[in-house]
Write a protein that binds this DNA or RNA. Structure first.
Lengths: 239, 239
DNA sequence: ACAGTCCGTAAACGCTGTTCACAACATCGC
DNA sequence: GCGATGTTGTGAACAGCGTTTACGGACTGT
């Protein structure tokens, strides 16, 4: 299969360089350092050249967000590779710990992806949300492990419709990935538990990343582990 | 008592105007819109004039943060004023709901105060954290209500020292506010419960503000209320 | 009245995102 | 191979940014 023209390849190379440089600037100096001129300078081109690749600075930033999500997803997959597939508890723990570890090591990227106020109501943030990706991965493990779920009447009524869509979406995603989950294994209540799982995890990690403890905490890891132990116990995954 | 010179009063007026304008820009168009020139333009002065009041744009932003915290604290106090002081459950619910309501109504301000990666390790973020302020208020209610606390051996060992400092700090704050809490009412375990309370609340609210649900949620309030019900039940404050 | 302080300005510097017209090069189809 | 088309990058320009500096005028205290 042809690799495209030499020009296509050169374009892809340049695009990759642009993204790599943008990321480096984000990581080292935060979002305000991701300027078109800084990127261009590093690549030995001028800023207007970047408009050949992206419609705007904001467009580039959006792609950066997607890159961060994809890389994080890849990292979590790697974390999972080291754990026996049948050990559901260990897998869930690995994913959650991986997420936290990554977040603490990448505060600028975390902020970019996970803590930006929505500004375009027409664009459905949930469609690209990492929570969705996370639950695509962790949800599979959670569902396979068999969860302790609350009675379905405990699910807020206004949530049922949303959960139904999410659940079938999740089943489709899993089916597309060659994962077969029995219908009974992923009911509404299970989807609800997954949602709450994510809320708890995200909240704990965000608070740590943004230093929002009400007092100086020497070592936050035990707090996280305690929360995690609670979580897995509540969903019935603990020993 | 003298009000100071006319110049002092003019300075205070101008400062107030600067802050008001900066806030308005933040709210309407986000942090990148808070430029010295935009503020100056609105006040009919030039940008360099602002350096008579603030050392830098960043200095102004820091003051803006403090303003937001103070205003939020005032809002929560108002929420509390409508609730009988003896109804501890209602007071806690009011404060938590007030916090969420405010956060959802003020996403840019929330982001500025609650979701900025720390960048100055020498400056102790926890000293100015709103979590601290929040627990100064809510902690009083929680302690007065008498909490169900875990056994002290459940407190992570590495946290004990931090909690001890926090607890005595909290007692001092309350004493200074004329609130007397018996020593036994605010032990280490209680302080730990308060910490976990804040983590849960913050996490839920942040996730909502940043639209980090894994799927579109039509109405997030029931999720919040469900979490809140869990929280107050866990601390022994429910009916 | 005078000296010191404060406030605001204009000019300047170096930086930003973006647009536009042009030139050079690469690719494609005949 | 050649001409037409598309792509890539440039330089110039525009309007905007944060910040510094020196100056002049107003205010304050003695």
């Amino acid at each position: 299969m042809t690799q495209g023209t030499r020009r296509d390849r050169a374009r892809a190379d340049t695009d990759r360089d642009i993204r790599r440089q943008a990321r480096a600037l984000l990581i080292s100096d935060g979002p305000q350092a991701v300027t078109l001129r800084a990127i261009a300078r590093e690549l030995g081109i001028t800023a207007p050249a970047l408009y050949r690749y992206y419609a705007s600075r904001e467009d580039l930033i959006e792609h950066l967000r997607a890159d961060v999500c994809a890389d994080l997803g890849g990292d979590l997959d790697q974390d999972l590779a080291d754990v026996a597939e049948s050990d559901h508890l260990a897998q869930v723990l690995a994913v959650c710990r991986g997420f936290r570890r990554w977040a603490l090591a990448h505060p600028q990227e975390f902020t970019l992806v996970f803590a930006t106020p929505p500004h375009d109501p027409r664009k459905d943030p949930a469609r690209d949300s990492f929570g969705r990706i996370f639950l695509g991965v962790a949800g599979r493990i959670l569902a396979a492990g068999g969860l302790v779920t609350p009675p379905e009447q405990d699910i807020p009524a206004t949530l049922v419709k949303d959960l139904t869509v999410f659940r079938s979406d999740l089943l489709d995603t899993m089916a597309a990935a060659g994962v077969s989950i029995a219908d009974s294994r992923l009911g509404l209540a299970t989807a609800y538990v997954m949602l709450r799982f994510w809320v708890r995890l995200y909240g704990q990690v965000a608070l740590e990343v943004f230093g929002q403890f009400p007092f100086p905490v020497t070592d936050a890891e035990p707090i996280f582990e305690s929360m995690l132990a609670d979580l897995v116990r509540e969903v019935g995954l603990s020993d």
